[in-house]
């Protein structure tokens, strides 16, 4: 049963991984970090990615269709993930589903040349599930 640190360590073993963190998107708090940050400071990166994630998690255009099946449960994120592609890298933001009210996501920063986006996206989804389901 992995905790936050084990989960981030595992994310860092993915090809091309440069940095990983677990962030609360409502407050911008970094609950855990590993590797490097694109701006040299994990707390700044956490606050910035949190703003991006919050926009996706709160705008009705992204969330309206997803609200129908299980009802509006605070712990069920309607958005699964976000991918931002830059010239030098990929950022994969994976929302974590918890059964209590929370607002956290896993953020993985990958090198564009050595990273494998498809693999990282699938593995990050598994890790997000393992983090809370064991």
């Amino acid at each position: 049963m992995p905790g936050i640190d084990e989960c981030l360590m595992e994310a860092m073993t993915l090809p091309g991984a440069r940095g990983a963190s677990l962030v609360d998107w409502n407050s911008g708090l970094a609950l855990g970090t590993a590797g490097e940050s694109p701006v040299g400071d994990h707390e700044t990166t956490a606050a910035e990615t949190a703003e991006l994630a919050r926009a996706a998690a709160e705008f009705d255009s992204f969330t309206a269709a997803a609200e129908e099946p299980p009802a509006e449960d605070g712990g069920v994120p309607p958005v699964e993930d976000l991918i931002v592609t830059t010239r030098a890298g990929y950022h994969v933001i994976r929302f974590v589903r918890t059964s209590f009210d929370s607002s956290v996501f896993l953020h993985l920063w990958l090198d564009r040349d050595t990273g494998n986006l498809a693999l990282a996206r699938i593995r990050l989804g598994d890790l997000a599930e393992k983090l809370v389901l064991g």
Binding site: M1, P2, C7, D24, L29, L31, T98, L131, V132
Partner: peptide, 20 residues
Amino acid sequence: VDSGRLRDGELEICHLGAVF
């Protein structure tokens, strides 16, 4: 966690949130 009520990750996420 040991009695199977919560997972490690859940405990850490919830507890850190409450502490801060």
